[in-house]
């Protein structure tokens, strides 16, 4: 898969200033923990780390908690429930297991979202922004691009005044393109963002949704195919 230099770069602090938000990274694997800390600091977040459950329960309050479910001392779901009970922070569970039951159990245990390993920073930061938007709807801004309006809070899409009915997948696809109009997203990135990470099946399913989205939006040129890479929203003259 050819990946252009712009697609994998970690967004810099100035691209997305999170105004002093704090992230608690609970991760027993030191390699992953260190990379996450570096990447999140680079993206403008304050970061503290915990290597196991007992440290996590003693940590300072945070705005977002990244919780690895495979900790050595406490069962991940149990820890998730205990963290939820004492904090209103957004919790994103991180797991290496993608089974449906695990996902449901994770959300039931109080997590706001989950990430399946291996994930990249683009996906991680997008998810952090998304859970923060959900917790703080006032901060949520509509995404505008020409006549296109995407409202992540109400999950509605307008072209001009026309309300466009989209399927959930089509909405997720469009909103990740609309977050940064003009930037080409790789197929892999879009699949990870819109299909909860690890869709396994024909990746052509993405092309299917793009084709259907183009029809519904009524402007086939709005979503551009970037050959060999993926898709982007066409820039507006």
């Amino acid at each position: 898969m050819a990946v252009g230099p712009d697609e994998t770069a970690v967004p810099r602090a100035n691209e997305n200033p999170p105004t002093g938000l704090h992230v608690l990274v609970i991760e027993d694997d030191p390699a992953i923990g260190r990379q996450l800390e570096r990447g999140l600091i680079r993206a403008g977040y304050g970061v503290s780390r915990a290597a196991d459950g007992s440290q996590a329960l003693l940590a300072d309050p945070a705005d977002v908690i990244l919780l690895d479910l495979g900790l050595p001392d406490i069962d991940g779901l149990e820890l998730c429930q205990r963290l939820r009970a004492r904090s209103s922070a957004a919790i994103i569970a991180v797991t290496a297991r993608s089974e449906e039951a695990t996902r449901v159990a994770t959300l039931d245990a109080g997590a706001d979202d989950y990430l399946i390993k291996p994930f990249g920073f683009v996906e991680l930061l997008a998810r952090i922004r998304a859970v923060l938007r959900r917790i703080n709807p006032i901060e949520s801004g509509q995404l505008r691009h020409g006549s296109l309006t995407v409202d992540p809070r109400t999950r509605r899409v307008f072209v001009g005044d026309r309300d466009i009915a989209l399927t959930p997948k089509e909405f997720d696809l469009l909103s990740c393109l609309a977050e940064d109009p003009g930037r080409a997203l790789t197929r892999q990135e879009i699949l990870e963002r819109a299909w909860g990470g690890h869709w396994y099946g024909p990746s052509k399913v993405l092309d299917v949704h793009v084709a259907s989205l183009r029809r519904k939006l009524g402007d086939p040129a709005l979503i551009e195919t970037v050959y060999g890479i993926g898709y982007r929203l066409a820039s507006i003259e």
Partner: peptide, 26 residues
């Protein structure tokens, strides 16, 4: 499942490295 954790570490590390190197190495 076991492969996913080292893959995640590797990917995050390479993504961070990506920003620190010159375009040819990128």
């Amino acid at each position: 499942h076991q492969l996913r954790t080292p893959l995640a570490a590797l990917r995050l590390r390479l993504e961070l490295l990506h920003d620190d190197v010159d375009p040819a190495a990128a």
